[in-house]
């Protein structure tokens, strides 16, 4: 602290509390909506304090058919699909980037830089700008409506490869020298020395990738046509459309709540790793 200004400190806290309130307001309204019965949620103005229907809405959303009058998978199934997709994307990305970063940093071989630039260009091609042709590739490979189709096109990523390259470059050369004197081959060195040394970086990256995978929207929307394969995030849109005919905001908002709990939990529970992962992958 530089100087003691009680009034300014109070103003600081007041502004921050106001900021927190503004940031949290949409979630509060969602939570409140998820605790009321459907009839109450059709009367304006909507309530601002929680009601007593939380568990009823919870069980109806999770195990019932979701919205009545629409055909969709039960919400637990969508949560499972989202979880599968998010985990496959994060583990797949981490695995292939570790391997390729290892090859690029620790081996000298023809076309090394060529491969590096090939990986680099993926940075410039987000799914959103190449949706149509990528969709055609997936359809030709017969990967529509599968977990592979949901995750693999999102797996290749230059950011993760860059990050691991950076991490490996900071590992002292003596590590490799002594490992080789002790008779360790490349794979032994990778598994017993590089992986343990980059454990926190892997964890930090996992947090970021899990959120990235869980929150995918356009891609699952395109390649899943069977209700069994829908993810929780994309189901919200279908529910909003259905809401125009028969508003059941309590169920919709409960679904939205369930859809944001896993990633929000990951961010809050692993805050330190999250901040580390965010600053490392984007720079």
């Amino acid at each position: 602290m530089i100087e003691n200004r009680p009034i300014l400190n109070m103003i600081s806290h007041a502004v921050l509390i106001l900021g927190v309130v503004i940031v949290a307001l949409p979630i509060w309204i969602t939570f409140v909506a998820a605790t009321h019965d459907p009839v109450r949620m059709t009367q304006a103005p909507i309530p601002m304090l929680p009601g007593g229907y939380f568990w009823e809405n919870f069980t109806q959303t999770l195990f019932g058919g979701g919205l009545s009058g629409t055909e969709s998978a039960p919400v637990w199934r969508m949560l499972l699909n989202s979880m599968m997709m998010a985990l496959m994307i994060s583990f797949g990305k981490i695995a292939i980037s570790l391997l390729s970063a290892f090859a690029i940093v620790y081996f000298k071989f023809p076309f090394r830089m060529g491969f590096f630039w090939l990986i680099f260009i993926t940075l410039m091609l987000p799914v959103e700008v190449r949706i149509l042709p990528t969709f055609q590739v997936i359809a030709d490979l017969g990967m529509l409506n599968s977990y592979w189709g949901l995750s693999i096109p999102l797996i290749a990523s230059a950011t993760a490869t860059f990050m691991f390259r950076q991490v490996f470059l900071t590992i002292p050369d003596e590590m490799l020298e002594s490992a080789r004197i002790d008779g360790a081959g490349p794979l032994r060195f990778f598994w017993d020395i590089l992986i343990p040394l980059s454990r926190t970086n892997i964890a930090a990256l996992f947090v970021i990738l899990f959120i990235y995978g869980w929150n995918q929207y356009l891609w699952p929307l395109l390649i899943t046509t069977e209700t069994d394969m829908t993810t929780i995030v994309m189901s919200i849109k279908q529910m909003l459309e259905a809401a125009e005919q028969s508003p059941q905001w309590n169920i919709i908002m409960m679904t939205a709540l369930l859809a944001m709990i896993p990633p929000v939990f990951v961010v809050v529970a692993m805050q330190r790793l999250f901040v580390q992962g965010l600053t490392e992958t984007d720079k």
């Binding site: 959120i211 990633p263 809050v268």
Partner: peptide
């Protein structure tokens, strides 16, 4: 303040 980062854009 940080958790809205985890909320999907569509949500």
């Amino acid at each position: 303040l940080i958790w809205p980062y985890a909320v999907a854009p569509v949500l």
